[in-house]
């Protein structure tokens, strides 16, 4: 009897693999800008409503030279930094308490759940009544927007710390503060930093909204003003700067992750 013919096993794996394609990423960005510029050259886009990238760049250059850009940018950055730091500080304290103490969780989580979905910009008028039209009401709005996601991220991070590590700490007689500081806090850090990624974006959104409601400096006020004057080139220049602000903030968070989470 002859042996049956050997048939090769067909290959069924492959695909579904992530590969970096840097060139594609870059050309997508440049392609968009080029298409936009081409649309303006060909007369497809009305420069009054959609100015060409070159015009936006020129407006940006003009703003940078006159010092207006620095003035508005610094005003916005100051509000973002102040509000984010306050919201993050309070949020971390509350989030750790909620994560660690059952009583704080029972009291805090319903409050957070109820207050988190409120668009914080809706309470800006209240903050203006409380703190006046100046800086504090804007900073408070940003702090409020940053606070709740930070609480949720920190409490979630504490929950994610394996119980076995806490037990290990107890088994070596670590005092409670050492368990919190050396085991719970570092264990919650990845979740906290993931929360930062969200809260820096929230802070940028809120500063623009707050400045559109009641300010004469800041990128939000500037963009609004440019719109009212039909200066779409300046308007888009402001939008580009806002995009860069958001990118830099996300970059700072990435840097913090690289430095603090080297162990991962």
């Amino acid at each position: 009897m002859s042996a049956p013919e050997a048939r090769p096993v067909p290959f069924r794996g492959g695909g579904f693999v992530r590969r970096p394609r840097r060139l594609v990423s870059l050309s997508a960005l440049f392609g968009l800008v080029l298409a936009w510029q081409a649309a303006s050259w060909s007369g497809l886009a009305n420069p009054l409503f959609l100015p060409a990238p070159a015009m936006v760049a020129a407006a940006l250059w003009e703003l940078a030279r006159s010092g207006a850009l620095a003035q508005h940018l610094l005003a916005s950055l100051g509000r973002v930094a102040g509000g984010w730091l306050i919201g993050t500080g309070l949020g971390l304290a509350a989030g750790l308490a909620v994560g660690i103490f059952a009583t704080a969780r029972a009291a805090g989580m319903p409050l957070v759940s109820a207050l988190f979905p409120i668009p914080k910009i809706a309470v800006l008028p209240l903050f203006i009544l409380w703190f006046g039209i100046g800086e504090p009401s804007k900073v408070a709005t940003i702090a409020a927007g940053v606070f709740f996601p930070t609480v949720i991220a920190a409490a979630g991070g504490v929950d994610a710390v394996p119980r076995s590590l806490v037990r290990m700490g107890q088994s070596f007689g670590l005092p409670a503060w050492a368990i919190v500081w050396r085991i719970v806090v570092p264990g919650a850090l990845p979740s906290v930093l993931a929360g930062f990624r969200i809260t820096v974006a929230i802070a940028v959104i809120l500063v623009v909204a707050a400045e559109m409601i009641g300010a004469d400096t800041g990128l939000g006020a500037f963009v609004l003003m440019a719109g009212n004057l039909m200066r779409t080139d300046q308007l888009l220049a402001g939008v580009v700067v806002l995009s860069l602000v958001g990118l830099s903030a996300a970059g700072l968070v990435s840097l913090a992750e690289r430095l603090l989470l080297r162990w991962r």
Binding site: L174, G187, L261
Partner: peptide
């Protein structure tokens, strides 16, 4: 104790994990 799942702190080096028991 010596634990089944080792219970090492992933963010501490080997020496750091050993000294955790002494730090306090």
């Amino acid at each position: 104790y010596v634990f089944q799942d080792f219970a090492l702190l992933p963010w501490r080096s080997v020496a750091g994990n050993v000294s955790l028991a002494l730090d306090h």
